[in-house]
Each structure stands twice: as structure tokens, then as C-alpha cells.
């Protein structure tokens, strides 16, 4: 093995099951307390689980470190770390990149300090939902504190743009509602849909930044409003994914070309901006 490479690890099922058991049966009381008093490293896990916590696998990745923000959560550091994760991990097979045990190692060991900075433990569900896949595989991948950073890049990378293949990633991650809504739901395994939508949104966002008046219209649509029936906000991004899903109802989403997604998204986005500025 070359010195600038290292083997990946998995958290063992026994360790994952022990943490999940505490979350389910003790409302995460013990695990949250242990994290709270051990923010520098996760050496506490060995005693907590009473078993081997991580096991080495044969796949290798380059030696790399994640950045830490100087002061709490920082969106620029999140973006930088997303790119760092993608560039160092994208050669791994997909069955590893979507395995809970791999991301449990990343969250609880390799990227422990950054993970805690990006997603502090604030409730009994934080560890289960953001550090482990307790809400299911797909949700775990797209909501996990480090896995979501990787997959946000994976879905938004624009290989056709030779100058900056991360231009859509940067645009998408500038607004948490934008990245969350566009990369989630049925779109989450359809790169051409995500890219087409983001290209339309980016172009319109640039168009609306030309005058103060238009800028305010775009901002209003981004902020949106609360639904009458509940507390969930509806905004440009929730509406765009909803209306696009509606468009796809009897169509085959896999066949729609990226150019057509772009055209449809543009049309829908203009309509939605109007709707929020009535």
C-alpha cells in the first residue's frame, strides 16, 4: 500500500445495533450523553458498545482530511468538504457508498469532529437520523451528515462544463431548501433531472439578479409561505419539485432528456415566481 492511501473501514453491525438500541429503548439518552462529553474523538464507543467498533475493508482511498469551520456551521466549509469527499471517494463501488456501515465509520470516526460541527446533537433523533440510517436506506443517504454532502455532488456534477464541473453544486448548496428539495424524492437517483432543474434555476436566478425589483421577486419565491393546513413551508423549490412530479405523472421520467427537463423547469419556475408575487 502506498503511504498516501488508507483502507476504508465499516462500523460493525454489533456497534450500530448497540447505538440504535439505545436510541430506540432509552431515547438516545446514553449515546447523546457520551457524545456530549467526547467531542474530540470517538474512543468512547469501544466501552459503550463492548465490542469491536470498526473493521478494516480492502478498498483503499487517498489520505485526506475534512476542513473544520472556525466558528460553528459554515456553508463554504460544507461545500468544500462536499467536494473533498466526492473527489476522494467517487472511485468506490456504489454498494459501499450507500452502505450504512461505511457512513457510520465516516461520521463516528474519520470525520467525527466535522460531523459534530455540521450537525450538533440537539435531539433524541439526531444520531439515528443524521449519523445512522434509522429512517431507512434512501433517507439515510440523503439526510446523513456526511453522506448527503457526497451525494449532493454526485447528483449535481456537470461533467460537460469543462471550466467548472461543480458550478451547479455551488449554486445548489447556496440555499439549503434548494439542494434538499431538488435532490430528494423521486429525483434522487435521476442525475439528468437534477441537472436540468438546476440549470434552469441558475439561469433564472442570474436573470433575476439584474435589477433590485426582480431580485426581490425571486427572493420572495425562495422564501415562500406557510401552508394554511400545517407548518410546512411551500416555496419555489418545493413547488418546482411538486409541479414537475405532476408533469411526470403519466410520463416516463427516465426517458425525458436533460434539455427537456431544463425547458420544462424554466417554464414552471417562471410560473411559480409569478404565483408567489401575486
Amino acid at each position: 500500500m502506498m503511504n498516501n492511501e488508507m483502507n476504508i473501514k465499516f462500523m460493525t453491525y454489533d456497534a450500530i445495533n448497540t447505538i440504535k438500541n439505545d436510541i430506540k429503548k432509552n431515547n438516545a439518552e446514553n449515546v447523546n450523553k457520551a457524545i456530549e462529553s467526547n467531542k474530540e474523538n470517538s474512543n468512547w464507543l469501544e466501552e459503550f458498545c463492548g465490542c469491536k467498533v470498526f473493521e478494516e475493508r480492502k478498498n483503499k482511498i487517498p489520505q485526506f482530511v475534512l476542513k473544520l469551520a472556525k466558528d460553528g456551521n459554515d456553508s463554504q466549509v460544507a461545500y468544500d468538504n462536499a467536494i473533498i469527499l466526492y473527489e476522494n471517494l467517487n472511485h468506490l463501488p456504489r454498494y459501499i457508498l450507500t452502505d450504512e456501515r461505511f457512513w457510520a465509520w465516516m461520521n463516528f470516526d474519520f470525520g467525527y469532529k466535522y460531523a459534530l460541527q455540521a450537525m450538533p446533537i440537539t435531539s433524541k433523533s439526531t444520531v439515528g437520523n443524521m449519523y445512522l440510517f434509522m429512517q431507512g436506506q434512501r433517507r439515510g443517504i440523503f439526510f446523513g451528515v456526511l453522506s448527503r454532502l457526497y451525494f449532493w455532488v454526485d447528483l449535481t456534477i456537470d461533467e460537460k462544463n469543462v471550466e467548472n464541473r461543480y458550478h451547479l453544486t455551488k449554486f445548489a448548496m447556496e440555499n439549503i431548501s434548494r439542494i434538499r428539495n431538488i435532490t430528494w424524492r423521486a429525483n434522487s437517483s435521476e442525475k439528468h433531472i437534477v441537472r436540468g432543474m438546476l440549470k434552469a434555476l441558475k439561469e433564472i436566478s442570474e436573470e433575476y439578479s439584474q435589477s433590485l425589483d426582480k431580485k426581490e421577486q425571486f427572493r420572495k419565491a425562495e422564501v415562500g409561505k406557510n401552508k394554511n393546513t400545517g407548518s410546512k413551508a411551500e416555496n419555489l423549490y418545493t413547488e418546482l419539485t411538486r409541479r414537475f412530479s405532476l408533469y411526470c405523472s403519466v410520463r416516463i421520467i427516465d426517458a425525458i432528456s436533460e434539455d427537456d427537463v431544463y425547458e420544462i423547469s424554466k417554464k414552471l419556475t417562471y410560473e411559480i415566481i409569478k404565483y408567489f408575487n401575486k
Binding site: 456504489r94 450507500t98 436506506q137 451525494f151 437517483s189 435521476e190
Partner: peptide
């Protein structure tokens, strides 16, 4: 078309 989907690996 034929669509191959694996939800566990988010492959489609």
C-alpha cells in the same frame, strides 16, 4: 426502454 433500479444503492 428497460429500467434497472436498485433502491438500496440509489442506482437507476
Amino acid at each position: 426502454i428497460m429500467v434497472v433500479e436498485c433502491s438500496a444503492t440509489v442506482f437507476r
